[in-house]
Amino acid sequence: MPIRAPSICQCGRAVQSGSRCPCRAQADRERKARHDQARPSAQERGYNGKWQTARKDFLASHPTCAMCGASSTVVDHRIPHRGDKKLFWSRSNWQPLCTSCHSSRKQSQERRA
């Protein structure tokens, strides 16, 4: 099976196929840290005790992941609420997902949108 040739990073280093240049990985870590500093806490975004109770009740009545059928562990907002309390609490906007689907499929869908 042929191996893809290394690529050249912006910093000038040759990077093997399938891996990332350390300078790009460091830049990503710094960018994510800056984003996290500006992001409100979960409590400030509405994920408080009232949410935990509603989440627990919803998962009890919707035990399987809407994407793969595994056991659901996350209540996902189909349409990102972006701070809109009405959309946040609208149960018709909620869907049960497993952690794997929420962390991979759903996040990649949101990035594309």
Rank of each mutant, 00 (worst) to 15 (best):
R91K: 09
R45N: 01
A25H: 07
C21N: 03
Q16E: 15
R82S: 01
A60M: 08
I3K: 14
S41C: 07
G83R: 03
Q107L: 11
S100R: 10
R4F: 10
C68H: 02
C21Y: 01
S72H: 02
Q52C: 02
L59K: 00
S103N: 14
P2W: 00
A54M: 11
H77N: 05
A25W: 03
I3P: 03
R45Y: 04
R29F: 10
S71G: 12
A70F: 05
R13W: 12
F58I: 00
Q37C: 10
D28H: 14
Y47D: 01
C68K: 01
D36R: 12
R111D: 13
H62S: 06
N93V: 00
R4M: 15
L87P: 04
K50C: 11
C101T: 06
W94I: 06
A38C: 06
A66S: 04
Q16V: 09
R34Y: 11
P63E: 05
Q109P: 06
P63I: 10
Y47I: 00
T73Y: 06
C23R: 15
T53C: 05
V15K: 08
R13A: 15
Q10K: 05
E30C: 09
R111N: 07
D36P: 01
Q26R: 10
D36H: 14
R55V: 02
S71T: 15
W51A: 12
M67K: 14
T53K: 14
R29K: 13
R105K: 10
P63K: 05
P40W: 07
T53R: 08
K32Y: 05
R34F: 08
P2E: 07
L87F: 12
R24V: 13
N48R: 08
W89P: 09
C65D: 06
Q109A: 07
A27R: 04
T64E: 10
C68R: 01
W94V: 00
S71K: 15
R13Y: 00
P40D: 10
H102I: 09
S7T: 15
R20L: 12
R82E: 05
G46T: 10
G18F: 08
A38L: 10
R111Y: 09
G46R: 01
H35C: 08
A27C: 03
F58V: 00
V15I: 15
K32N: 09
C65E: 00
C11H: 03
K32D: 15
P80T: 04
R111I: 04
L87V: 08
Q37K: 15
T53S: 12
A5C: 03
P40I: 09
K85Y: 01
C101F: 09
Q10N: 04
S100W: 08
A14W: 10
C68F: 05
T99L: 02
P22F: 01
P2Q: 03
A33W: 12
A42D: 06
R31W: 02
A70Q: 12
T73Q: 11
P80M: 02
K32E: 12
R29Q: 12
C9V: 03
T53Q: 13
R24P: 06
H35F: 12
T64D: 11
A33P: 04
R55E: 08
M67Y: 14
R20T: 05
R31P: 04
D36K: 14
